[in-house]
Amino acid sequence: MGKTLQNNMRRLRFDHNEMTQQELADRIGVTRQTVNAIELGKYSPSLEVAFQIADVFGVPLDEVFQYGNSTRSRT
């Protein structure tokens, strides 16, 4: 099984007053569809966007994204 980029964005959004995908998208300057694609692991963001997401949640990058074995297959 190959390693993939995983994330905790859904949980972090929930922890931040149930922030919507649209709110997060507006704050990092991407579309809601892009946030959804990142969250589902269908799209790996650039380093800049990844840091922006971590900055919005006020946590280190490795708390948002992890690189490891995934049980979910990439579409």
């Binding site: 991407v30 579309t31 892009t34 963001p45």
Partner: peptide, 11 residues
């Protein structure tokens, strides 16, 4: 709003 937004990196 979406129409005014410039293309992001994924697009």
């Amino acid at each position: 709003r979406e129409a005014r937004t410039p293309k992001d990196e994924r697009e």
